[in-house]
Design a protein around this nucleic acid. Sequence first.
DNA 1: TTCATTATAGACAAATTTGTCTATAATGAA
DNA 2: TTCATTATAGACAAATTTGTCTATAATGAA
Lengths: 188, 188
Amino acid sequence: MARPGNPREKIMATAGKLFYEQGYNATGINQILEEAGVAKASLYSHFGSKEELGIAYLKEMSIAWFRAFFTAIGKKTIPEDRLLAIFSFLEDNMLKQEFMGCRFINMLAETGNNDMQQAIVAHKQQLRDQIHQLTVAACSQLPARDTKAIADTVYLLFEGAIVESKVYRDVWPIRSARKAVKQLAGIA
Amino acid sequence: MARPGNPREKIMATAGKLFYEQGYNATGINQILEEAGVAKASLYSHFGSKEELGIAYLKEMSIAWFRAFFTAIGKKTIPEDRLLAIFSFLEDNMLKQEFMGCRFINMLAETGNNDMQQAIVAHKQQLRDQIHQLTVAACSQLPARDTKAIADTVYLLFEGAIVESKVYRDVWPIRSARKAVKQLAGIA
DNA sequence: TTCATTATAGACAAATTTGTCTATAATGAA
DNA sequence: TTCATTATAGACAAATTTGTCTATAATGAA
């Protein structure tokens, strides 16, 4: 059962998997400890409580998510391609693992904790900003339009695509969203 | 604490409130019983288990949701207005109560139960069908286009709007989605 | 009124949850 | 090698969870 890394990393890796696959409330501290191969006192000395672990989980997963996001976008240079790449990124993620949708949206359905909610909003706000930037770049050559409104539409389609690909266990929402964005942004 | 109605109805009314406000796993059977003012044996004789209650909850809430949905749409006669009315419906819902997003999406984040997942997919499929019909009607006067694709875009924007209005605790996602749909469907 | 059905209060069980604490072992810098 | 720091196993506590069962009361059709 022992995973590589120090106890803190092992706990986070296992919690990251279990919170995502089973949900936060359905995952007991004991299961995390057992699967991580770490002593109970290590969890409480590193995180203090399950809630604190949940908060740390959200913050670290946000960083990891954006790392992967930027890596995916970074492979493209043409602004139009970069915008569309966010949907290919989604599709790759969906096909790679047992896709359980968005960790942050999932957690938001389970928690009333203020710090957790803040971490989730911060994550989504950052995503919204990034999509805004990508949209501005992709639409710069186009006739003047309300780019900000288009960016929010892209964002809503992106979020809708994540959630619905989970509901239907299918890529169609991602493909549909991508097509809609192509038309919206006037991309051939 | 006693609510009107027979024990079954009291349980469902209370569970409907608590599952939505606190989440399914965070809500214990004892809290439901206490707030409903109903005996424990009544719950188990009517539903058999907490999971069965969860399944019944999803099915009954779906019916109630569509009842309200059709009532809102029914107030409009012009096809274009009827399509846009789904967003006003969302906005009214959001402002009415402590808005916790979509019950069905929330439950999907918490459960691995097959019957629950099926009930959720069935609900969303029905919604997708309805939006498809409304879109076809609203776009019938327009130059030939891929109405089916537009309908799915409307659906994804609708779903994105629900989820994001919860994240941001704000109506902007609903308003943005509505505007995007107006343009998409070519509504003045 | 009779009597089967339905509801109630609440004890009880068995498992599980988060969190604390202790005694001991491993680790790693000085 | 020394010694403070970090980790481990696991007992333990207190609360909570779902579910069962019993004895009694209310209900409502025949």
